[in-house]
Computed example of a mutant assay.
Amino acid sequence: MSPNDSSDGGAVTPAKTRGAEGSRLRSGIESTETEQRSDRLRRGYESRRSTGDRRLTAGLLALGVLSLGGAIALPTAQRVLFPLAGVGLFGGVLAYGLSAGRFIDASDGERVYGAFADNLAAVTDTLGLTDERTYVPVPNSTGVEVRLLLSGRVDHLLSGEGDAPIVDPDGRGLLLEPSGGDLYDEFREALTEPVATSPEPIAEQLIDALCHRFEFVTDADWVVSGDGQRVEITVSDSAFGPIDRFDHPVPSFLGVGFAAALDSEVSLEVSVEAERNAGVVVCRWHVGEASQSTGERVPS
């Protein structure tokens, strides 16, 4: 019998104890690294946002001070410079007071998006298109942009440089610019590190932006599948209402983000859990499989 064996089947052996301690240690290290990456992302977003506020405040205050000094030095110009000084100083103080955050009522944003969603949903119904939504990277003169494909195939819809929207003359498909496209561009510019290229860190970056940069949701959790070709994301308290509406900004941003970062088309399934005021977004990509939109094989 080895030293680590025990006649008591229920006894905890030293080997088991060391294994459990090692597992807890690895889990703690991974948790710490995740928190540190999230903190870096959050600091980067806050720094970019506050820089513009500081510049505006400083510019207005400088205008006020210079105008006031000019009014004192040039009595003949006081009628113009004193009001200008007042505007600059008052504007600077006001900008400083508002720089902590810009408030837009969530219900107003939801109403604006709701009209857009209802109109496009009516268009797709009129064309008889399916509910399948695929976010597809499309090459253009400046690189790659992501488009929202509704039925059809990209190679049948593209013309020129692939500017959206494009409607198949036979009504078999529709290629649109997604609501998450410009959001993804802003997210990428605000990052203090490169966009990740594997599913787990991509999900972390995108969700951190949804919660802290854009504040579209209050909380989110995600699980990446074992084969690395699927992620399920649960979000809470969407600022734009139920996330299962047409090209909702939350799933659209996620679809665009995964499609751009992985350079692969991404299909979405979206559902709502009304009792928890939550929604679930399932993103699937087709790495290593035949592309559904072009018929070509996507390299892994």
Rank of each mutant, 00 (worst) to 15 (best):
A85V: 00
A85H: 07
A85D: 05
V87W: 13
V87Y: 12
V87D: 05
V87F: 14
G88E: 11
G88C: 07
L89V: 08
L89P: 07
L89A: 04
F90P: 00
G91C: 06
G91M: 01
G91K: 05
G92D: 03
V93C: 06
L94K: 13
A95K: 02
A95Q: 02
A95W: 09
Y96A: 08
Y96C: 02
Y96M: 03
Y96V: 00
G97P: 05
L98S: 14
L98Y: 14
S99V: 00
A100S: 13
G101F: 10
R102F: 11
R102C: 03
F103L: 10
D105K: 15
D105P: 02
D105Q: 14
A106M: 08
S107I: 00
S107V: 11
D108I: 10
D108T: 07
D108G: 01
D108W: 11
E110M: 04
R111M: 01
R111Y: 13
R111W: 10
V112E: 15
V112A: 15
Y113A: 15
Y113K: 11
Y113W: 15
G114K: 12
G114Q: 15
F116D: 14
A117G: 08
A117N: 04
A117C: 09
D118L: 11
D118C: 03
N119C: 06
A121L: 12
A121Q: 14
A121C: 07
A122N: 07
A122S: 07
V123Y: 10
T124S: 09
D125Q: 14
T126P: 01
T126M: 03
L127H: 04
G128A: 02
G128M: 03
L129F: 08
T130I: 00
D131Q: 13
D131P: 08
D131L: 01
E132L: 07
E132W: 01
E132S: 03
R133S: 11
T134F: 01
Y135V: 00
P137C: 06
P137G: 03
P137K: 07
P137V: 05
N140R: 13
N140Q: 07
N140I: 04
N140P: 08
S141P: 00
S141F: 12
S141M: 04
T142K: 10
T142P: 13
T142Q: 15
V144C: 10
V144L: 11
E145N: 05
E145D: 11
V146L: 12
V146W: 11
L148M: 09
L148T: 02
L149M: 14
L149K: 06
L150T: 06
L150Y: 10
S151M: 04
S151V: 01
G152D: 07
G152K: 08
G152E: 03
G152P: 03
R153C: 03
V154I: 14
V154P: 01
D155V: 10
D155H: 12
D155W: 10
H156E: 14
L157A: 14
L157M: 09
L158N: 05
L158A: 06
S159W: 12
S159Q: 09
S159L: 10
G160I: 08
E161M: 06
E161H: 08
G162M: 07
G162I: 06
D163W: 03
D163F: 05
A164K: 01
A164I: 03
P165A: 13
P165S: 13
